[in-house]
């Protein structure tokens, strides 16, 4: 079996996390390291206390060994998230957040909560955001037809969440539209 059953319908959240962790993030290193060539690019040199940009997975690795501090991205702050939450709850459209914010914020809250300002507040804001957006995407199911649905500003994790239902629903709609005669006779 080349691909296990659960992986056939969709990608999994850990896989999305793997993809998201290729993005770069700023750190303040606590060790020095020469410039090194990795497969994804050359990173370094690390010279404490100068900031450096490395992939998130590398930062997480170093952070767990207490070899760096992570500089959280601008959007992972109480002020930014609060303003987005206000937009989210007052406007009908999805507010504009980084495409992989859910994965990245989870990773950073898990391993680097001591580098964040007020992690508890951030956590609860993220949760509120998620719930507000979830309600909207559920509402979006009403607009689903057989041909197209635009989803501006929807994020990677949210898409993955609605994927099974939306794809199934759209497939059913397609089948109904394509075979109208059979449904008419079936209705009688």
């Amino acid at each position: 079996m080349a691909l296990p059953q659960p992986l056939r319908v969709s990608v999994t959240p850990p896989e999305l996390e793997l993809v998201a962790c290729q993005q770069l993030i700023e750190i303040v290193p606590l060790i020095s390291m020469e410039k090194t060539a990795f497969i994804s690019g050359a990173y370094g040199p690390l010279r404490p206390p100068h900031k450096a940009k490395i992939p998130i997975w590398m930062a997480v690795n170093l952070k767990l060994k207490k070899k760096c501090h992570i500089v959280p991205p601008e959007w992972l702050s109480v002020d930014f998230l609060q303003s987005k939450l206000t937009l989210e709850t007052t406007q009908p459209a999805f507010s504009d957040l980084p495409f992989r914010f859910a994965e990245i914020s989870k990773v950073l809250l898990d391993v680097a909560s001591d580098d964040l300002d007020n992690p508890e507040k951030i956590r609860s804001l993220l949760k509120d955001l998620r719930e507000a957006r979830q309600a909207k995407s559920r509402d979006g199911l009403k607009q689903l037809d057989h041909s197209e649905l635009s989803l501006p500003n929807l994020c990677s994790m949210e898409i993955n969440e609605i994927r099974p239902v939306f794809i199934q629903a759209m497939s059913v709609l397609t089948r109904i539209v394509r075979n109208p005669i059979r449904t008419e006779t079936g209705g009688l």
Binding site: I31, S32, W57
Partner: peptide, 15 residues
């Protein structure tokens, strides 16, 4: 210091 470098390179290889 080299060991950390090696470890990071190896982690990336696995990814």
């Amino acid at each position: 210091e080299e060991h950390i470098r090696i470890m990071l390179v190896q982690t990336e290889i696995e990814r």
